[in-house]
């Protein structure tokens, strides 16, 4: 099975190789042939959520072209995958591009969703000795509708002592540009999230979206708390 990796700009620009590398290695372990179209950039969400839809269309067209020959597009992000799924709405008045956007939407999956729903994998044979909890990101659960897949996979990670995060449905306060436009509100939201994480007595916070993890992790770091932040791909690739 051929899979094209959509790395996302955060995993590309901000974070070191680990998240992308783990994603590639897990997929390969389950028989996928992974390629990385080098011309990929960002899903366009910063512009879309800020109301710059003309600009978003340019980005979307570029991404549609980048992945036009892909069989499957898999991404280590629920939010960015949701954005790819949003593309058809951008081209309501443009049947040709709408069609292309639909094609991309139909073959795009978030990593855990792809593993569980497409590859039918429930156990990735990972091992991680740690007390951990999991942050369910809003776009991935509510908009993309992926709730069970990450839990199914995490449940089978050997050595992982898992505690469910209280108030897990609550947003962490990232919200893209919200995090810099509404700093005082974002601060309160992320403080409460960090508090809930602390309440689980976990050593590791796991998440499937680097946006949320950058926000929560950045706050944890600022407060000097001994909690490590890991992307779910990194956890699933731990052995």
């Amino acid at each position: 099975m051929k899979v094209s990796l959509f790395l996302t700009c955060l995993a590309d620009v901000v974070y070191p190789a680990s998240v992308g590398k783990s994603t590639v290695e897990i997929l390969e372990r389950f028989g996928c042939e992974v390629d990385f179209p080098k011309k990929q950039t960002c899903c366009g969400q910063p512009a879309f959520n800020s109301g710059y839809h003309r600009e978003t269309k340019d980005v979307a067209k570029h991404m549609i072209n980048v992945f036009k020959d892909a069989e499957y597009v898999v991404s280590p992000s629920g939010s960015c995958t949701t954005m790819l799924h949003e593309y058809p709405h951008l081209f309501e008045d443009d049947p040709e591009w709408k069609q292309k956007a639909e094609e991309l939407k139909n073959k795009s999956f978030e990593l855990t969703q792809f593993l569980v729903d497409v590859l039918n994998v429930k156990d990735v044979n990972a091992k991680l000795n740690a007390k951990a909890t999991y942050h369910t990101s809003c776009h991935m659960t509510r908009l993309l509708g992926v709730t069970e897949a990450p839990m199914t996979l995490l449940k089978n990670v050997e050595g992982l002592q898992f505690t469910e995060l209280p108030h897990k449905e609550q947003c962490c306060g990232f919200g893209g540009t919200f995090s810099v436009k509404m700093v005082p509100i974002s601060e309160q939201m992320v403080n409460e999230k960090v508090q809930h994480i602390e309440d689980t007595d976990s050593e590791v916070l796991i998440g499937a979206d680097l946006g949320c993890l950058m926000n929560i992790g950045g706050r944890i770091n600022r407060q000097g708390k001994p909690i490590k932040v890991m992307h779910i791909a990194e956890v699933l690739n731990s052995r």
Binding site: V13, V14, V180, K181, S186, G218, R219
Partner: peptide, 12 residues
């Protein structure tokens, strides 16, 4: 504005 309340990872 970001670093007013939280740290940012150093860009890779």
């Amino acid at each position: 504005l970001w670093t007013d309340i939280r740290d940012l990872p150093e860009l890779s």
